[in-house]
């Protein structure tokens, strides 16, 4: 099939960007979206032009590197998938496709479609861990039984891949879904309870400091999240923050 691509091109963080138009022919329906981008890039290289920069790595939907805003949606049409899992059969011959980077003040553009998501790392560094040393001399793994429902809920929250689709989707570029997923995972487990109050306060602080917007509860993030992280996590974070900031000394 033949496609018209409208791709955001921007040379560096401080340079001005614009939408450039490219035509690609001979695109197979079985290609993944990123393989279609590979085709475009190889054509650009052969023509002596600068290929489009984009983040990608595992190409099986788990590393969270790929990050394209395609035709108005994070990771394009389709639910529960990342950009690398989007296939060209989701488009029709002759379609025009808009491809833009994640848009957020906290995710500055590095080049073209590549953004800097280290804000997420800093949120985790501010408290997204359990302070246990790595000696291996801890309790036996089965010493504390954990109700299956809690373990499952913690797992569901922990499946977040940190891709940033929630921020990209949110009209306010809010990082609440990301932050709350980690807070939920750790506060649902007995091992994470001792530090729960410090954790939620510190992580929310860092989130604010990074310049993400606020949550308006539109729910768009959860819809576009490739891992289906639930809004219940956001509520849990709201609840825990309220509790922590009213009871913490």
């Amino acid at each position: 099939m033949k496609l018209t691509l409208k791709v955001w091109r921007q040379n560096g963080p401080k340079e001005k960007g614009k939408i450039a138009t490219y035509q690609v022919d001979d695109i197979s329906e079985d290609m993944s979206f990123l393989e279609m981008m590979d085709v475009l890039n190889n054509e650009l290289i052969e023509k002596g032009e600068d290929p489009v920069a984009f983040d990608h790595d595992c190409r099986e939907g788990i590393c969270g590197a790929c990050s394209m805003f395609i035709n108005g949606e994070a990771h394009g049409p389709g639910r529960g998938i990342t950009t690398c899992q989007l296939h060209m059969r989701s488009f029709n011959d002759g379609d025009t496709i808009y491809i833009e980077p994640w848009r957020a003040a906290a995710f500055p553009i590095i080049k073209d479609l590549v953004v800097n998501r280290s804000a997420f790392d800093r949120i985790i560094q501010s408290g997204g861990f359990i302070s246990v040393n790595t000696s291996g001399n801890t309790l036996d793994a089965n010493a504390i039984p954990i109700p299956k429902s809690d373990a499952d809920a913690a797992f569901d929250a922990a499946t977040c891949i940190g891709c940033g689709a929630c921020v990209a989707t949110c009209k306010n570029s809010s990082a609440m879904l990301f932050t709350s997923a980690k807070i939920s995972q750790l506060s649902l487990l007995p091992q994470g309870k001792p530090e729960a109050k410090e954790r939620v306060v510190n992580m929310v602080k860092q989130m604010d400091l990074e310049g993400f917007g606020n949550c308006t509860n539109t729910g768009a993030c959860a819809v576009e999240c490739p891992k289906g992280i639930s809004l219940e996590n956001v509520a849990r974070m709201n609840r825990e923050f309220l509790l922590a900031s009213t009871t913490k000394s």
């Binding site: 861990f129 359990i130 801890t138 373990a151 995972q185 091992q191």
Partner: peptide, 25 residues
């Protein structure tokens, strides 16, 4: 030999391994 420590360590770090209905791994 050290394989058993790994599981203890990871559980202590909050890795959500699958559990049965009794709450055990």
């Amino acid at each position: 030999e050290v394989s058993t420590n790994i599981i203890d360590q990871c559980v202590a770090q909050g890795v959500p391994f699958a559990r049965d209905y009794g709450g055990l791994l």
